[in-house]
Amino acid sequence: MMHTAELLEVFKQYRGDSIVIPGRGGRNWVPVNDGPFDLPLGDPAMGGHAGFGLGVALAQPKRKVVLFDSEGDILMSLGMLVTIAEQKPANLYHFILDNGVYATTGGQPVPNAENVDYVTIAKGAGYERVHEISEIEDFKEKLPKILRETGPVFIRLRIYPEIQNEAIGKRRPWMKRTREQVVVDLRKELSLD
């Protein structure tokens, strides 16, 4: 098992000029990476990050798009895997942060948490390249090679849960920009507006 912060620290060395959608890893990513190609969105509506990543990847095919999705999100949108596999965005790297629980609601297990094989699901949906990594040393070794593969690549990362129990109103906000601003900043950086 890995800690989200440590695996993101490793990834940071290899991100290059990629667009990063930190998803559920946003709290750990934003304090050190919050430029125009970082797209921390919090949780606009659960289950949608994969679709957002697909859209950005299709729109910017010359740039790597790295998405840190979660198992809870993708369970809500399993059909999205089929759409991604059909579109075949060669620049999309679809990481799943799998802690087995709904961490932001107190740590209740996701359905059938102990038995779900996300890699098999992704492969069955049509992803041709899939990986599963549980240890940080393995992650360090495999990450550079994974980022050279042709997307879409699906990577399940087994992580420790970082459970939150406080009432939402009492939690410390971690986003530095609003979601709308994140989109505005990206488009501006890409000279679209």
Binding site: L39, G51, F52, V56, A57, S77, M80, L186
Partner: peptide
């Protein structure tokens, strides 16, 4: 699913 896909497409131009 169409909503977040469309949002990503727009964000990317």
């Amino acid at each position: 699913h169409a909503c977040s896909i469309a949002a990503g497409l727009y964000a990317g131009g």
